[in-house]
């Protein structure tokens, strides 16, 4: 029995094109590496030629995933396997939807493919709170 995809949303105080660019171009600035990464704090993460690559404090690298869809500024999808091989990837899709305030974007994240994890239910639960923290950082709000 497969688990439903996980959904998390956040309002970001940027218009959709800028919210999209912030997600991609500034990922190294907003992603909470100290809490969610392969090598811990002190490194960086960036989108490099369609892949999401973390570089650790001593220069070691880890590929977190590969972009599978980039429809700027509406949607971005990528395989997702931090700390695992690309054969063990789940998948993430992020959409950027305008709201009634032109300066605010609803960023919605869907994370599916849980069956690749050894304990799918536990991983889904862990990401359930993890994405809240990560998206809170994207929004740059008080949830940091």
């Amino acid at each position: 029995m497969s688990l439903d995809p996980l959904h998390r949303e956040v309002l970001v105080s940027l218009p959709p094109p800028r919210a999209f660019r912030r997600f991609v171009d500034d990922v190294g600035a907003w992603w909470p590496l100290e809490a969610f990464s392969v090598f811990g704090a002190g490194g960086t993460v960036e989108f490099v030629e369609g892949r999401i690559v973390e570089t650790g404090p001593s220069g070691e690298t880890a590929v977190w995933g590969t972009v599978t869809e980039s429809r700027e500024p509406q949607a971005l999808a990528f395989s997702w396997h931090p700390g695992r091989t690309d054969g063990e990837a789940s998948h993430v899709r992020v959409t950027f939807t305008p709201t009634d305030d032109p300066a605010v974007t609803l960023v919605a994240l869907e994370h599916g493919g849980w069956e690749v994890y050894p304990d799918p239910r536990a991983s889904r639960e862990s990401y359930g709170s993890g994405w809240v923290t990560v998206l809170g950082r994207l929004a740059g709000g008080e949830s940091r």
Binding site: T99, D101, L106, G141, S143
Partner: peptide
């Protein structure tokens, strides 16, 4: 915030 036909409530930034 209204998003399409959805009416959403969210924490106000800075609240």
């Amino acid at each position: 915030r209204s998003v399409g036909t959805r009416n959403l409530y969210a924490l106000a930034p800075g609240g």
